[in-house]
Computed example of a mutant assay.
Amino acid sequence: MATLILVRHGRSTANTSGVLAGRTPGVLLDERGAAQAAALPARLAGLPLAAAVSSPLERCRETLRPLLDARPGLALHTDERVSECDYGDWSGRKLAELVEDPLMEVVQQHPSAAAFPGGESMAAMQGRAVEAVREWNARVEAEHGPDAVFLMCSHGDIIKSVVADALGMHLDLFQRISVEPCSLTVIRYTRLRPFLVRLGDTGDLASLAPREPRERREAAQEAADEGRAVVGGGAGAP
């Protein structure tokens, strides 16, 4: 079947302010995120793209705008099923304060049982995203052939959940996966199994460098250092 390139949106203003954006309207790319988006056409220059699919949220559409400008013939399709997780009452709140919520332990250790108050469950999030990916794979292959490559721009937790499905991992293990802003994750689907070809590829190894002293780290980075995943995906390397 077709090859899928999953693009996480560029770094957003919510990422850098440590806020869990969710589906809050008006969350845009920050300066670095805009630069990441501007670099996307060159990173994908050698690939013929059969289609582009996006979450309806502004930060994803902003991320794809330079690519669409560079490829006038590439049509953009919007799919609600790859929109951000509906974090409900958690949306718009600081991640540092959410760490104290008892639900956070469930989100970290047993996400298949986590349901956000006023929002959706993480299991439902994964179900709709995987359904969308598989339907788009079938559609792209039917229209463009089995060697077609297509792109989908979405969000950290969505991409992690799709990767977990592709690897046959239980959702309870998906917090072990990390995808930075504007990273590329590639899954090649075949008749028998998917193959994970790239995971969170930014072409940049800066995030592997030693960290600053603990007292100067962002709260989100402290959480990652302590083994907790950053809900929503985090801001990436400093």
Rank of each mutant, 00 (worst) to 15 (best):
S178I: 03
L184C: 10
S207P: 09
G200N: 15
R176Q: 04
L199G: 01
L196H: 05
L173D: 14
S207M: 09
D201Q: 12
E180S: 12
R188V: 02
S183K: 02
P210E: 08
L208I: 10
P194Y: 00
D201P: 06
L208M: 12
L173M: 13
A206S: 15
P194M: 01
Y189R: 01
L208H: 14
A219F: 09
A209R: 15
A220T: 15
L199W: 01
T185Q: 03
Y189D: 00
L199Y: 00
T202P: 07
R216Y: 10
R193T: 07
P210H: 02
R211Q: 08
G203V: 10
L173P: 02
A209K: 13
R216P: 03
A224T: 06
P213V: 04
F174Q: 12
T190D: 14
Q221I: 10
F174D: 05
A219G: 11
R198G: 06
A220V: 13
R214F: 03
Y189T: 00
L192D: 14
Q221Y: 04
F174E: 09
A209W: 06
P181W: 00
Q221R: 02
E212V: 14
F174L: 08
F195G: 05
G203A: 03
A224P: 03
V179Q: 07
L196Q: 04
R191K: 15
E212N: 11
V197L: 09
Q221P: 01
R193P: 00
Q221F: 04
G200M: 04
A209P: 04
R191P: 01
F195N: 14
D225L: 14
R176C: 02
L196E: 03
E180G: 08
Q175M: 04
D225A: 11
P213Q: 04
R188Q: 11
L173N: 08
A209D: 09
G203R: 00
L173R: 13
E180L: 11
V179E: 05
A223M: 12
L196N: 05
A224K: 12
D204Q: 05
V179F: 04
E180M: 12
P194F: 04
L173C: 05
L184T: 11
A223I: 05
L184N: 05
Q221G: 03
P181E: 00
D225G: 06
F195V: 07
P210C: 00
F174T: 06
S207G: 15
E180F: 10
G200V: 03
E222L: 14
V186N: 05
D225S: 13
V197C: 11
E218H: 12
L173F: 06
D201F: 14
A224Y: 09
R217I: 06
R211T: 11
R216C: 07
T202C: 12
E218Y: 08
A209E: 13
C182G: 03
F174S: 06
A224M: 07
E222D: 09
E180Q: 14
A206T: 13
V179I: 13
S183N: 04
L205H: 13
A220D: 13
F195L: 14
A219E: 07
C182E: 04
G203T: 12
C182K: 00
P194W: 00
C182S: 11
T185H: 06
D201G: 07
R193M: 09
R176T: 02
R198M: 14
C182D: 02
E222V: 11
L196F: 00
E222S: 05
I177L: 15
A219P: 10
Q175N: 15
E212Y: 06
V179H: 04
R214D: 06
A223H: 06
S178L: 07
F195I: 13
